[in-house]
Structure formats: structure tokens, C-alpha cells
């Protein structure tokens, strides 16, 4: 039984680590989320389902992604949207509208506040590329069950004054490190927007969102669903893909 103490020690150590890890810091949680969500180089196929006032529309697109800052979207369906493209480099966005319009429109100023393809997301929502940890102080404040999954409750409060949402609250899956629910608040503390992660799937060695539902809480719409159909990791993407020239191709 010489080994016994070693095993005990191993257990004790492991247990202690796990025990400490039970309340990670807010920063840890955010980093773990990033690790799951940020794709190095990937091509994904997604569908946006928009539940508008008068009906439901769905838009399919092919997306080229590189890290947090580069994205190129080409809409493929319905026929009306086919050929429209969007390029995002950091916080800049350009939209391309194919023939006969054949125009590249810089999305800046108040256009950033327009919704993306009529969804509950604005261009501003998708272009915010500052790190959450740079913008917010994060604090784990407790645990709650969301969709039968055990979650940390992480509260973010802004440390800068030029941030769209003054505070946010995340419910992060303790095992899979994905936010299953997020609410964004106004300065007055009133909830404004909400997203719910309804399905996830495993992608190589990580968990990735499959279906997200966005809601504008001040309107009683039915929200927007964002569905990831498939993801090709480590895709070969030419650097020229993320240029304005690629928009007109």
C-alpha cells in the first residue's frame, strides 16, 4: 500500500483543483467561451430565419471566417438575395449589391444601426470586435439551470463609456463553455436584447452553437433564428478573400 498515499494525494490535489475551479473568474469564463467560438480559418454555411411582423423568411449564406476580425459573407438563397455579399474587417463593413445595381455600400454612421438582412441583429451588433474583457468587468455571480444544463451566471458591467450595451448577463454552460443565454441591458438596467442558444454540436474538440434565437425585448416580435448548417475547419482561404475586390467577383 505504498502507493496509497500517492493516490490519495493525487485525489486530494485533483479534488482541490476541481474544487477551486468550481468558481472560475469572469475572465476565465470569457476566455473559455472565446476558445470555443473563435474559429481560426473556417468556411461555414448558415441559415437565418427571420420571424417578421408579416411572415417568416429564411436566408442562406456561405461564410468565410478568419479569427475574430475577418468575415466574408455571400448570400446564396433565396434567389433575390443571391449574389449579395458582405465584407467585415474589424469594425468596418461593406455590402455589395450585384448587377444591375453593382454597388459597394460602406455601412457606416447610422447605417450601422440598420438591421442585418431584416433580422434582430444590427450591423453594429456584428461588428463590435473589441474583446468583451476590454469593454467589461466580468464577475461570476452564481449558478443557474438553463435548459437542464448547469450554468454559471456571469455579469458584465462596462468599464468604458462608448459601449452600446451598458451591462450584460450571460448564462454559461459549466461543461461546454458556451453561453446558453445572454441578456443585454440599457444604462437604466432595462433588458433590451436577448439571445438563447437552443442547440449545440461538437466540432472536432470543441462545442459550437447550432441554433441561436435572438430577440428584441422591447418589441413583441418572434425574433430571429441563426442556424449553423455546417462548418469546415482549417479551410484553405486565400488572403484575397477578405478584400473589397472580392466583393465584385
Amino acid at each position: 500500500m505504498k502507493k496509497a498515499p500517492a493516490i490519495i494525494i493525487f485525489f486530494i490535489i485533483t479534488y482541490t483543483i476541481i474544487g477551486f475551479a468550481q468558481v472560475p473568474s469572469g475572465l476565465d469564463v470569457l476566455m473559455k467561451i472565446d476558445k470555443n467560438l473563435v474559429l481560426d480559418k473556417a468556411i461555414s454555411y448558415t441559415t437565418i430565419i427571420i420571424h417578421g411582423r408579416t411572415g417568416t423568411r429564411s436566408i442562406k449564406s456561405k461564410n468565410w471566417i478568419e479569427g475574430k476580425d475577418k468575415a466574408f459573407v455571400e448570400y446564396t438563397d433565396p434567389p433575390r438575395e443571391k449574389g449579395k455579399k458582405m465584407l467585415r474587417l474589424g469594425n468596418q463593413v461593406w455590402n455589395y449589391y450585384p448587377e444591375p445595381t453593382d454597388r459597394i455600400i460602406t455601412i457606416s454612421g447610422h447605417l450601422l444601426r440598420q438591421s442585418v438582412m431584416g433580422s434582430d441583429l444590427s450591423y453594429e451588433d456584428i461588428t463590435e470586435n473589441r474583446k468583451l474583457t476590454d469593454m467589461y468587468d466580468a464577475k461570476v455571480t452564481g449558478s443557474e439551470m438553463i435548459n437542464n444544463r448547469n450554468c454559471y451566471v456571469v455579469e458584465l458591467s462596462s468599464k468604458l463609456d462608448d459601449i452600446a450595451y451598458h451591462s450584460r448577463k450571460l448564462w454559461v454552460d459549466k461543461e461546454r463553455w458556451l453561453p446558453l443565454k445572454e441578456i443585454r441591458y440599457a444604462k437604466s438596467g432595462r433588458p433590451i436584447k436577448q439571445s438563447e442558444l437552443l442547440e449545440v454540436f461538437s466540432l472536432e474538440n470543441r462545442w459550437y452553437p447550432k441554433r441561436i434565437l435572438y430577440h428584441d425585448l422591447m418589441q413583441n416580435g418572434n425574433g430571429t433564428e441563426y442556424i449553423v448548417e455546417s462548418v469546415e475547419l482549417h479551410a484553405a482561404i486565400a488572403e484575397s478573400q477578405f478584400t473589397k475586390a472580392a466583393l465584385k467577383k
Binding site: S158, D161, D162, I163, A164, Y165, H166, R184, A186, K187, S188, R190, I192, M218
Partner: peptide, 15 residues
């Protein structure tokens, strides 16, 4: 009536 606005820094606010 609920209102939503953005202050001059761009932060959403509501009341």
C-alpha cells in the same frame, strides 16, 4: 410608453 435611445456616446438606454 417605453422608450429607447442612445446617449451621445452611443450607449443604449431605455426608460
Amino acid at each position: 410608453v417605453s422608450a429607447r435611445w442612445r446617449n451621445i456616446k452611443g450607449t443604449f438606454d431605455a426608460g
